[in-house]
Simulated assay, not measured.
Amino acid sequence: QITRAEVGKMEIVGNYTDFLEVYLPKRPLLQYVWDYLRLNYSATLRSPLFPVILTVSSYFIFCVLYLVFNIMGRRWPLIHKYKIQQNRNPTASMMLRCIGITAYNHLVFIFPAAVAQWYWRPPIPLPEEAPTMIEAIVGIIGSLLLFDFQYFIWHMLHHKNRWLYKTFHAIHHDYMALFSLATQCLGGWKLVTVGFWTTVDPIILKCHLLTTWTFMVFHVYVSVEDHCGYDFPWSTSRLVPFGMYGGPAKHDVHHQKPMSNFAPHFAHWDKIFGTHAEYNYSKGYLEPGSINE
């Protein structure tokens, strides 16, 4: 026999269930976004050229904002005060050189590979279900961590091996004071390997396509941010707690002291291997003796 108290509890549970069904979405939040993209842009999304177009266009869009800051310089004191090396601004010739190298690498290496892939690989199927928000966040962070480990090893090897450094990596260190277009001012071999890991890592982690493309765009953004030459209060490194993330200031140290701060994003691998170094804001350079040359 059911008591009056038990009846009251059942009514409360029933009302709570009705509330959840009425006021909470019955589908994952990203499902609405994914359905819109999948139903309206299916042919574009299935093309092997889409990831290339997505990352290249994102790269130049992210670069433009920081280049405006560089061009305006001291005329925008509220912005300029966040510049890491305030007495050094890129010249027009430096910017044009980086644009030329970036365009050459994409035309000679990236786009031919994408077109070849388009020729032999059929369009990829689009799943009907979108990832949950948690799945997307975990996939993006996991891909960033995996890339961070791969690039740390690759980067450190190219600095420790003189032939690798001179042949493939030295061009990226032509600039001690960084600006956004220097992000992809590098040898074609490096761009191909970075692009390979960026593409393969979400596949290894079995990420949804929407997660994969979001990771690619976010990865481009944080790469540009690392090279932008500014350390804003809203920089990713300041938003991530406990100094876990590197950021623009620490990558600026790498270009002043090339045997430090090899990891592209996070700080744990450099701390483990003893190559971590902090930027000294009061002096505008690295503390003497804080890392070996």
Rank of each mutant, 00 (worst) to 15 (best):
Q1I: 01
R88A: 13
E225Y: 10
K160M: 12
G289I: 01
L191I: 10
H268T: 04
K81G: 03
T183Q: 02
V56Q: 04
T132M: 06
F60E: 00
V68L: 10
I204F: 07
H159G: 14
L30H: 08
V253Q: 11
L96Q: 03
D18P: 00
S47A: 06
F215A: 08
N105L: 04
Y41K: 01
E278A: 09
P112L: 07
W269C: 01
L210A: 04
L30T: 05
T198N: 11
V68C: 13
H276R: 06
R238V: 05
P202A: 05
Q31I: 01
I153P: 06
L29N: 04
W118H: 15
G8I: 01
I99Q: 00
P288A: 03
D270W: 12
G195V: 10
F19H: 09
R38Y: 00
H80K: 07
L144M: 15
I61T: 06
G142C: 10
V108R: 05
F168P: 14
G274M: 07
I84H: 02
V217M: 04
Y279Q: 00
H106M: 03
Y230L: 12
K257H: 15
G187K: 03
H227C: 08
I204K: 04
L54G: 04
S143A: 14
E287T: 12
A267F: 12
P125L: 08
Y165C: 10
S237Q: 14
R97T: 06
E129H: 14
G274V: 03
E21D: 09
V194I: 13
G8K: 07
A267G: 05
K26L: 11
L145S: 14
V194S: 15
V13K: 06
F266Y: 07
H155V: 09
A277C: 15
Y119P: 09
D148M: 11
I61L: 05
R88K: 13
S282D: 05
A92E: 04
P202I: 06
V108D: 03
L210H: 02
T44D: 00
L164A: 13
S260N: 09
T167R: 15
Y175C: 08
V253M: 15
V138N: 10
F152P: 11
N40A: 02
L39H: 01
Y165W: 14
V194A: 12
P241Y: 11
N292Q: 10
P112K: 07
K257R: 15
R238L: 09
S180T: 12
A182Q: 09
I2P: 00
H251N: 08
I291E: 01
T91N: 08
F262P: 03
N161E: 09
S290M: 01
V22W: 02
F179P: 10
I124G: 15
G274A: 04
D226Q: 12
I101M: 04
L29V: 07
E287G: 00
L45N: 02
L164M: 13
F152L: 12
T91G: 13
L96A: 12
A136S: 15
